[in-house]
């Protein structure tokens, strides 16, 4: 009898998971009334990626407020899975597919399937291509004010350690902006590629080695991370070596980075408000659906806030949720 109960309990657990899940989760918006309702499929990048997740969640919340039906899938950073997710949304005949971070031209089979079905795709940070008429820039724009700050702080001369991540399209765009701004300067660059996972530790290790070969007082020194995590790793290296002569810059405005700016350990980070950008995407959604797959390609530019010790208090008043 006990055995039968065990088997029944296990089966019931599976059924409960499935049925409860299918009954609707936090992201399943109520269907809107006929005429203005949209069905949106969202392909996240990875649930563990705070940069894109904030915008995705804000978009889902904005869509829910407007009564649109949403489904989202996490392909865990795998492009093959993302293509599969797009195909599933094509089967579901959604009105629009939103894809986060994956380069649009690296999802060829999925994008083609969506285009063939007449479903437009919007990208968060992946760029526009045939079938993806709209993309929210998540790369180059984010680096602009921060890099301008760095060039101003160093007076356009000195040594710079760049912590980059080439496989990520946003980081590639950010480094393009950095290179463009460094063209007319006398800043000597040492570049290191950080791995993911392990980006914080790599930032620490690369910074320690670089600091050893760049003693205090030589030239203006700075460290530039294409996102905050390796920059935070560099801050740790500075603390360990007792150095206070190196300016550290990061991008994304993570809680750790904003705290480091407030504490004077980082010179600046660039922040994009996910709520604003999620709403921006929601605002353009009806137009994109109406225009379809052949709409004119356009890139949406986010509002980027450079957070420095001088403005961090005002920044936190404006965005009190950042440190949570």
């Amino acid at each position: 009898m006990k055995r039968k109960r065990s088997a029944l309990a296990l089966t019931a657990a599976l059924m409960t998971t499935l049925v409860t899940a299918c009954g609707g989760g936090a992201e399943t918006g109520a269907k809107a009334s006929a005429g203005d309702s949209y069905s949106i499929g969202v392909v996240r990048f990875a649930s563990s990626d705070p940069g894109s997740e904030g915008i995705v969640q804000s978009y889902l919340a904005a869509a829910k407020e407007r009564g649109w039906e949403t489904s989202s899938v996490d392909p865990q950073g795998a492009a093959g899975q993302a293509v599969g997710a797009i195909s599933n949304f094509v089967q579901k005949q959604v009105d629009l597919i939103v894809v986060a971070v994956f380069p649009s031209d690296a999802l060829a089979a999925g994008i083609k399937a969506a285009k063939s079905a007449g479903i437009p795709v919007v990208s968060i940070g992946g760029g526009t291509t045939d079938g993806v008429p709209v993309s929210l820039d998540f790369g180059r724009s984010n680096a602009k004010p921060l890099t301008e700050q760095m060039v101003k702080d160093t007076g356009g001369k000195g040594d710079l350690l760049v912590l980059g991540f080439t496989p990520g399209l946003p980081c590639v765009g950010r480094e393009e902006e950095l290179k463009a701004q460094l063209k007319e300067t006398d800043i000597k660059v040492t570049r290191k590629e950080v791995p993911i996972p392990g980006q914080v530790e790599a930032g620490t290790e690369f910074a320690q080695a670089w600091l050893a070969s760049h003693p205090k007082g030589s030239r203006p020194l700075a460290i530039w991370g294409c996102f905050d995590d390796p920059a935070i790793g560099a801050v740790s290296a500075l603390r360990q070596t007792g150095r206070d002569d190196v300016l550290v810059y990061g991008i994304n405005g993570t809680p750790a980075a904003v705290k480091a700016v407030k504490g004077g350990d980082m010179r600046a980070t660039a922040y994009v408000d996910p709520a604003t950008e999620g709403k921006r995407l929601a605002d353009v959604t009806p137009d994109v659906i109406a225009a379809g797959t052949d709409a004119k390609e356009r890139t949406l530019l986010p509002d980027v806030h450079a957070v420095t010790p001088a403005n961090v208090d005002d920044f936190l008043k404006k965005f009190p949720g950042v440190l949570r």
């Binding site: 299918c22 609707g24 989760g25 992201e27 649930s47 489904s71 989202s72 599933n88 949304f89």
Partner: peptide
């Protein structure tokens, strides 16, 4: 994976 996309489950259910 297909079921998750079609039914609109929240990601944690995946």
């Amino acid at each position: 994976f297909n079921a998750i996309a079609l039914t609109g489950m929240a990601t944690y259910w995946q």
